[in-house]
Computed example of a mutant assay.
Amino acid sequence: MFTSSRRVASAAALVGLLSLGLSACGGGTTKDSTAAQGGGGQTTGSAPASADPNAPIKEGLKIAFLPKQINNPYETIVDKAGIEAAGEYKGEAKEVGPSDASASSQVSYINTLIQQKQDAILIAANDANAVCGPLKQAMSKGIKVVAYDSDAAKDCRNLFINQASSEEIGRSQVKMLSDQIGGKGEIAILSATANATNQNAWIEFMKDELGKPEYKDLKLVKVAYGDDDDQKSFQETQGLLQAYPDLKGIISPTTVGISAASRYISGSKYKGKVAVTGLGTPNQMREYVKNGTVKEFALWNPKDLGYLASFSAAALASGRITGAEGEKFTAGKLGEFTIGKDGEIILGPPFTFNAENIDEFDF
């Protein structure tokens, strides 16, 4: 996602920010001395932790990225950037995770990371509640928990690194599709998993936006779930078009889904008749933008998301921040961030990609 000193407005500035290719000093809390914190800086122990904004980042921090699924191209970009960021503060980072995005698939990995005594676990939760028990256990042992991309329950993590405001993402997706189809017709949403926190939040704002008078001629006929699986998302797209022959557009706010939907429509009779938009990476979507299947879509810089998540975890584990609202910290080259309500940190607004600018990006 693109940010303020971080939040650059022009594509040229974005390219400069991205280069762009597509999360042993004292002064802070330690695993042994302080009770684990919950979301928003609340502690599970008897005394609240206090932040030392001048504390140095500890060398040798052990952090682990736990994505929704290990083979998700988008999350691979996020995690790789976060692992590389750890090198800047002399930490040790890795990625582990399941090959499927089921609700409970991440639990065993959390348990293993607890046994390995990681300093921080960074998780893109498949299900906000399914991972809560083991994450609380990690926090009780002084391990910091940072959710990114898809939130865990608020009392099961210290921070949530959000790509953009959920409201901004959801409402902008509706406006984008409406503009492409002239504000009229049947539309569908192709989501990831039914339990994905981020997807559900965006969809709720989409539905609310559709309730406005200016969208009275748009009708949401179906929310389908491709489970962040390419083949299932492809089949769900086919099923939508068979079930709703008058469908005019599909919003797929997931990189796996938008790519699969675009691939299906690109090779079908619906090309040029059914609009597709959502959230995707330029490298995934370039072919479909250039062949006219997709007019425009949106995303943030996933590299920046991983980078920010990594530095947030380091700041937590070093005692620079506790996760309390109003605390500030510097995330390397991205500059200063302020923690918002419920321990949420927003990277910045999404960016729209189209035929005019897509070749300026490589991720």
Results as ranks from 00 to 15, higher is better:
residue 2 F to A: 15
residue 4 S to V: 13
residue 6 R to N: 14
residue 7 R to I: 13
residue 7 R to E: 13
residue 9 A to R: 15
residue 10 S to G: 14
residue 18 L to E: 14
residue 20 L to G: 15
residue 20 L to I: 14
residue 20 L to H: 14
residue 26 G to E: 12
residue 34 T to E: 07
residue 34 T to Q: 12
residue 36 A to C: 15
residue 38 G to S: 11
residue 39 G to K: 03
residue 39 G to A: 09
residue 44 T to M: 15
residue 51 A to P: 12
residue 52 D to Q: 06
residue 53 P to I: 05
residue 56 P to Y: 02
residue 58 K to T: 09
residue 58 K to M: 05
residue 59 E to D: 13
residue 60 G to E: 04
residue 66 L to A: 01
residue 67 P to Q: 06
residue 68 K to S: 11
residue 73 P to Y: 01
residue 73 P to T: 12
residue 73 P to D: 09
residue 73 P to K: 03
residue 73 P to V: 08
residue 76 T to E: 10
residue 76 T to L: 12
residue 79 D to C: 15
residue 85 A to D: 00
residue 86 A to P: 01
residue 87 G to F: 00
residue 90 K to G: 00
residue 92 E to C: 05
residue 97 G to R: 03
residue 107 V to W: 03
residue 109 Y to D: 04
residue 111 N to Y: 00
residue 112 T to G: 02
residue 115 Q to Y: 01
residue 116 Q to H: 03
residue 119 D to S: 01
residue 119 D to W: 00
residue 120 A to K: 05
residue 125 A to E: 04
residue 130 A to P: 00
residue 130 A to S: 08
residue 136 K to T: 01
residue 138 A to G: 08
residue 142 G to R: 01
residue 149 D to V: 10
residue 157 R to V: 09
residue 158 N to K: 07
residue 161 I to G: 10
residue 167 E to H: 12
residue 170 G to W: 00
residue 170 G to V: 04
residue 171 R to M: 01
residue 171 R to G: 01
residue 178 S to G: 05
residue 179 D to E: 13
residue 179 D to F: 00
residue 186 E to N: 14
residue 190 L to Y: 01
residue 193 T to W: 01
residue 195 N to G: 09
residue 200 N to R: 12
residue 201 A to K: 14
residue 203 I to C: 05
residue 205 F to I: 07
residue 206 M to A: 11
residue 206 M to T: 04
residue 206 M to S: 09
residue 210 L to E: 04
residue 212 K to M: 10
residue 212 K to P: 11
residue 215 Y to K: 11
residue 217 D to H: 09
residue 217 D to I: 08
residue 218 L to G: 09
residue 218 L to D: 09
residue 223 V to H: 03
residue 224 A to I: 04
residue 232 K to Q: 14
residue 233 S to W: 03
residue 233 S to I: 08
residue 237 T to Q: 03
residue 239 G to C: 07
residue 240 L to K: 09
residue 245 P to A: 10
residue 246 D to N: 15
residue 246 D to S: 12
residue 249 G to R: 07
residue 254 T to D: 12
residue 255 T to W: 00
residue 259 S to P: 02
residue 261 A to L: 07
residue 265 I to C: 08
residue 266 S to D: 10
residue 266 S to Q: 07
residue 267 G to D: 06
residue 279 L to A: 11
residue 285 M to W: 01
residue 286 R to P: 08
residue 287 E to S: 12
residue 287 E to I: 12
residue 287 E to D: 13
residue 288 Y to M: 11
residue 292 G to W: 06
residue 296 E to R: 14
residue 298 A to D: 13
residue 299 L to Y: 14
residue 299 L to Q: 12
residue 306 G to R: 03
residue 307 Y to T: 11
residue 309 A to W: 08
residue 311 F to M: 07
residue 313 A to Y: 05
residue 318 S to H: 07
residue 318 S to Y: 04
residue 321 I to C: 05
residue 325 E to H: 11
residue 327 E to W: 01
residue 327 E to C: 06
residue 329 F to S: 10
residue 329 F to V: 06
residue 330 T to S: 15
residue 330 T to D: 11
residue 338 T to Q: 13
residue 339 I to D: 04
residue 345 I to M: 10
residue 346 I to Q: 14
residue 348 G to Y: 05
residue 350 P to K: 10
residue 351 F to G: 11
residue 356 E to C: 08
residue 360 E to K: 15
